[in-house]
Structures are given as C-alpha cells and as structure tokens.
C-alpha cells in the first residue's frame, strides 16, 4: 500500500510550534501567578481559564488563523444529540466517554478491541492543524490532536481482501436523544477506501487545542479526513471494520443524490440545495472560494487519478 508522505512542515509549521511553546510557557507563568495570587487572597479557584486564549494566534499552512476553542466547541453538527448546532455542546456533556472501547475487526489478521486510553498511550498524539469544510458551506481551522489511522492498521494488518473501511458510531438512545428519531438510519456509519484510510493526512482524533476531545466534537475518538466534507469525519467511533465492498454511509442512505460515498470537497459539484463554490469561514464576514480537496490537492489528488469526480462525488 502506497501512502503519500507529506513534509511535516506542512502539517504544523515550525514557527507555530515555537509560538505554541511560548504560549504554553506564558500560560504556565500566568497560572503560576494566579496560584500565588489565589493563595494570597484565599480564593479557592486555582486553575486558569479552561479556555486557552491564543494571544499570538497560530495559523494553518495557508496562513489563516485558527478558530477559537469556543467556536469549535460551540457550533457542531451532531444529529445524535440534536439537529441544531448549539445544543450538542450542552447535551453532550453527559456522554459517558470513559471507559470507551473501540473494536477493530473484519478482514484483518489481528482483530482487536482497544480502550481509547490505551490507544492514546500507544500512539503519541500529534498536533494537526486542519481546515474542516462542512457540506453546509461553512468552515473552520482546527488544531486537532491524534494519530494516523495507518499506525493502527499496521498492528491489525488488513488482509489482501480488504478494500474498504467501515466506521460506526455508538448506538445508545439512552445517551443520544436524537437516536429516538426513527427517520434516520442509526447508528451513524461512514466509509473510506482503504488507500484513503491509509493516507498520512487521515487521523483518529483524540483531542483539540491540546486537550481531550470534547464530547460534542466527537470525543473520545473520531475520524478526521480534512479533504472531505465534515460529515465523513465520523464521531464517537466504537467499531472499525475492514471490508471488501464499498460500505453505505449514513448520509448516502438518507439522500444518495446529495451525498456520495467520496464526498471530497469539490467547488465544482453543487449540493442540490446550494452551491459549493464558496464557503463562510466562521469568524469572517465575506465568503471565500472553496478550494479543490479543501486545499489538500497536492497531497490527495493522486488518489483519484482517472476518476470522474462529478459522478463519484
């Protein structure tokens, strides 16, 4: 299996790492200061604000600033909780994310069930600053923590019969009020071609902004595939299965004319309801042009060589 290596400088530029080091240092100084201050005035609050305020905002490799922690955690599509984007932040707080087990099986030599905590210890977190382009034509820049999915696959060893990967979210209507709505094909499922899943840009996300992944953002573990529309990056995964046939995803099930298997960000292929040629970056007031493969064409275009992307949308 050929995977496209991308220079690590394109994932997180060095100056951002350095500025982040400075930022963490400053945060430590501030929190130490606040601890001293707290011990002086007898306040019981020892911890600094739980929201990291970036005074020197980091940027993605195209030079665009990160979205704030508040934006990222306060505006999410999570139909298991609700159909609007604000209430998941509140409703998700009760989700029991520990312990969380993830089963990896199907066409593999070493099927295995992992605890997410063990996975995090086994595969050190890397920070990846990725653009997330929602199919609804808005986008954000998000500093994820996670590890490449291909590292996990090295261990479970897909057999030669494995051609696709099927992902599944937890099904538990007691925790997910939205799963009471029978008009949706629960549980949420997604799929990737094996070479897409093996690509270095594809990660299992376990955190953002240096913290554990908040439940409304798909915690404790989710997929992040930055060149595809956001809905491909399935949240709260409990099952990864290697299969021979192309799986059907949640959104394909609902409306195949609008949501294809590939769902690559493509400004040329509109949704039946709206154009995908431009998008609103959250925090900005003017639309910006949507980039082919969400700006990751150099790394991923080769995966689709010779394919008609208006048919395979």
């Amino acid at each position: 299996m050929k995977t496209n290596k991308i220079p690590s400088s394109q994932i997180t530029p060095e100056e951002i790492y350095i500025s982040r080091r400075k930022f963490i240092k400053n945060l430590a100084i501030i929190s130490a200061g606040s601890m001293i201050a707290a011990s002086c005035n007898g306040s019981s609050s020892l911890s600094p604000s739980s929201t990291p305020e970036l005074t020197n905002p980091a940027k993605d490799e195209l030079g665009d600033p990160l979205n704030s922690f508040q934006d990222i955690t306060g505006y999410t599509n999570y139909y298991e909780f609700a159909e609007d984007k604000s209430s998941p932040s509140r409703l998700a707080q009760g989700l029991k994310t520990f312990p969380w087990s993830l089963k990896v099986d199907g066409l593999v030599n070493n099927p295995k069930t992992y605890f997410v905590d063990d996975l995090k210890k086994k595969y050190p977190s890397e920070e990846r600053i990725y653009r997330l382009r929602c199919v609804e034509a808005w986008s954000m820049v998000i500093p994820w923590l996670g590890f490449p999915l291909n590292k996990l696959f090295e261990e479970v060893e897909p057999t030669s019969a494995a051609k696709f990967v099927r992902f599944e979210t937890l099904k538990d209507p007691a925790q997910y009020p939205g799963q009471g709505n029978r008009s949706y094909p629960w549980p949420y499922t997604e799929g990737l071609r094996l070479d897409e899943a093996m690509h270095d840009l594809t990660i299992l996300g376990t955190g953002l902004y240096g913290k554990d992944l908040p439940p409304q953002n798909g915690g404790p573990i989710r997929l992040v595939v930055p060149w595809k529309y956001g809905f491909k990056s399935i949240k709260a995964i409990v099952h990864i299965e290697l299969v021979a046939e192309q799986p059907t995803s949640f959104w394909m099930n609902l409306w195949p004319e609008a949501y294809g298997f590939y769902a690559n960000v493509n400004p040329e292929v509109p949704h039946p309801g709206w154009s995908q040629s431009s998008e609103l970056r959250i925090g900005e007031t003017k639309r910006r042009k949507t980039l082919m493969f969400n700006g990751y064409a150099d790394q991923v275009a080769a995966l689709y060589q010779g394919m008609d992307l208006t048919i395979n949308f």
Binding site: D71, G74, Y75, K85, S86, E136, W138, L280, I282
Partner: peptide
C-alpha cells in the same frame, strides 16, 4: 442578534 446569540454563523 443584539445579544450575539445567533450562533457563530448568524447568516445561516
């Protein structure tokens, strides 16, 4: 809108 409660994507 005045209270800035129309989410982070008020246009939508």
């Amino acid at each position: 809108a005045i209270l800035n409660q129309l989410t982070v994507n008020p246009v939508r």
